[in-house]
Computed example of a mutant assay.
Amino acid sequence: MRYLTLEKALNAWNTLQPISEEDKTRLARRFSVDFNYNSNHIEGNTLTYGQTEILLLFGKVIGEANVRSVQEMVASEVSLKMMVAESRVKETPLTQNFIRGLHHTLLREDYSVHRELPGGMQVGYVVHAGQYKTRPNSVITRYGERFDYASPEETPAMMTDLVDWYNNAEKEGNLSPVDLAALFHYRYIRIHPFEDGNGRIARLLVNYILAKHDIPMVVVRSRKKEEYLEALHAADLAVGAAPSSGANASIKAIAPFLKYFRSMVAQEIDADVRFLTKHGENIWWYDGECIEFRSPNYSKILELMQSEPVLSLADIQRKLNIQISAVKKLVQHLLDKHYIEKGKDEGSWHVFIVQSI
């Protein structure tokens, strides 16, 4: 990591201000794909990063795609836009109506869930969009333990307390926006107010808090899911199992999660800074990672794929004047890393990796 502390990362970001409208657009476009892909992929959405990019930026579905996953991703993008718009009205306090409305937008409509329990027993229930849960929810941790969230009866009062606490804490200013977002996330997750979508709503609300205070929004990366869940689990052990303890946890009590959260925010801000400042024809970005190709032929191939509607391997070989075996090896590497995919038509390509220029 380039900046060892959150403070240094924020200072580096602030020195870039104000950034151009073009750079704002580049960051927003990158964030839209990264956030929606990762937040939904953590919860089991089956769209690839490439499918997500084409869907959100061009409104098209490529390859085989689960209909539900496509609908979830589109609804996630609408929810993201809704959250960003709300964060810009800085004098407006956070409300439960907004949280429930965000949830309704994310889930779209009520739907039924049917599951088979160990032993063959069938159970079914309805997930209510925009309404707090009507049945208890819990999770089996990675260590095999059952962990209960707030009961349906407790949830309305706990959510009232959570929103009131947040609005008061924001006014008082005793917690930094990053620490406030971390503590809000933890308390919210311990309530788990909805029957589904709690993790996705938590990550949207974290970014609502950051954006409201002019701090770059962040992505909890799916490839780092275990680190994220382990930090929450470590905080649970420190806070205690009672839902009321979690819903009223102090910033000191959630130290393991806070340490993770600050580091994650610093890394994400650092990536934004490098995205805007680290340039070169061999420097590209994919899902929050800076890819610096050692061979300039990778960049030449990617640029050709972006500019040519039809491009065969023989075309690449001829334009770059290198052996066809080398072309095949380079293209296969790009395919294996999912930086590119073959298009529907012969010789067409989808390029998902973004050049930092």
Rank of each mutant, 00 (worst) to 15 (best):
2 R>Q: 14
6 L>G: 00
8 K>W: 04
8 K>V: 14
15 T>Q: 00
16 L>Q: 03
18 P>R: 07
18 P>C: 11
24 K>R: 14
31 F>D: 04
31 F>P: 03
34 D>A: 04
38 N>E: 07
40 N>W: 05
44 G>S: 08
45 N>T: 13
46 T>R: 11
51 Q>F: 01
56 L>V: 02
58 F>E: 12
59 G>L: 12
61 V>N: 08
64 E>V: 09
65 A>V: 08
66 N>V: 04
70 V>W: 12
70 V>G: 11
71 Q>A: 15
77 E>V: 14
79 S>F: 11
83 M>Y: 10
84 V>D: 08
88 R>S: 06
95 T>S: 15
95 T>Q: 05
97 N>D: 14
97 N>M: 08
98 F>G: 06
98 F>M: 06
98 F>Y: 12
103 H>K: 00
105 T>I: 09
107 L>Q: 00
108 R>K: 02
111 Y>T: 05
113 V>K: 06
113 V>L: 09
114 H>Q: 14
114 H>C: 13
116 E>H: 01
118 P>C: 07
120 G>Q: 06
120 G>Y: 05
122 Q>V: 14
126 V>G: 01
129 A>M: 01
136 P>D: 15
140 I>T: 15
140 I>L: 13
141 T>H: 00
148 D>F: 10
152 P>Y: 10
153 E>I: 07
155 T>Y: 12
157 A>P: 00
162 L>Q: 01
164 D>F: 07
172 E>W: 04
173 G>F: 11
173 G>Y: 03
176 S>P: 05
176 S>F: 08
177 P>S: 02
177 P>L: 06
177 P>Y: 01
179 D>C: 01
187 R>Y: 06
188 Y>P: 06
191 I>T: 13
193 P>F: 03
193 P>V: 10
200 R>H: 00
207 N>H: 06
211 A>I: 03
213 H>Y: 03
213 H>I: 08
214 D>Y: 00
217 M>Y: 05
219 V>G: 09
230 E>N: 12
233 H>N: 09
234 A>E: 07
236 D>S: 02
237 L>G: 05
238 A>T: 04
241 A>N: 13
242 A>D: 13
243 P>V: 07
247 A>G: 02
248 N>R: 11
250 S>E: 08
251 I>C: 11
262 R>Y: 05
266 A>M: 04
267 Q>S: 06
268 E>S: 09
272 D>M: 02
274 R>W: 01
274 R>D: 12
278 K>P: 04
288 G>Q: 02
292 E>Y: 03
293 F>N: 12
296 P>E: 08
296 P>S: 12
297 N>D: 12
298 Y>F: 15
298 Y>M: 14
301 I>N: 01
303 E>W: 01
314 A>T: 13
316 I>N: 06
318 R>E: 15
319 K>M: 07
321 N>L: 04
322 I>T: 02
326 A>K: 12
327 V>T: 12
330 L>R: 00
331 V>W: 03
335 L>F: 02
338 H>G: 05
340 I>G: 05
346 E>Q: 15
349 W>L: 09
350 H>F: 14
357 I>C: 08
